[in-house]
Amino acid sequence: MIKLEGLCRDFQVGDQVVHALDHLDLVIRQREYVSIMGPSGSGKSTLLNILGLLDSPSAGNYWLDDISTASMQDDELASVRQKKIGFVFQSFHLVPRMNAVENIELPMVLAGLLPADRRDKVAAALERVGLTNRADHRPDQLSGGERQRVAIARAIVMQPMILLADEPTGNLDRQSGEEIVDLMENLNNQGLTLIVVTHDPAIGNRAQRKVRIEDGRIKIDIQ
């Protein structure tokens, strides 16, 4: 489903070029559970941003569902992100003035769904993350773990194929971090492709497939 071929991402910093990704090849199949680990600055986030179509490679190819993403324009990229990809971030990124329901329905609002069509889906997503009784709480009225659940509910409400998580437990204590990982694994069991970037070996080792990146290249890839 995901196929990367000779992927490079260079950043120009002053007169120096940083090779954040350096001829990286990777294939990820549907329903896989992949963890990506590596030292700081090795290019994990850069890889995830390219997978999520927020960034584009300097060289190489990225096929998503056998379609090359190289030629896609802003509108098309946005629409692919909307339909196929869900993001979970380390710092949640909920809109502070909106309550849980409003945050979760944002992707559907952008997609132009009518309120009547949104209601059931929001309810289902809340149910899946176990927050039905927090529906009208604003982010500042939720705990860190609960905020991340809202973020996950928002990521899955459009029923994407891939969930990309960049250090999803980085801002959480161990207890709620594990709950979040449990929740995502649960979604993976139901068919969602899960790609998690983490520094925590305990979390990274839970994945069926463990990828280690160093200096923008894949060092170890254990199935």
Partner: peptide, 14 residues
Amino acid sequence: EVGLLKALGATHRQ
């Protein structure tokens, strides 16, 4: 917030 909206599939025009 804008970055988030983009990640959620908002277009330039939106």
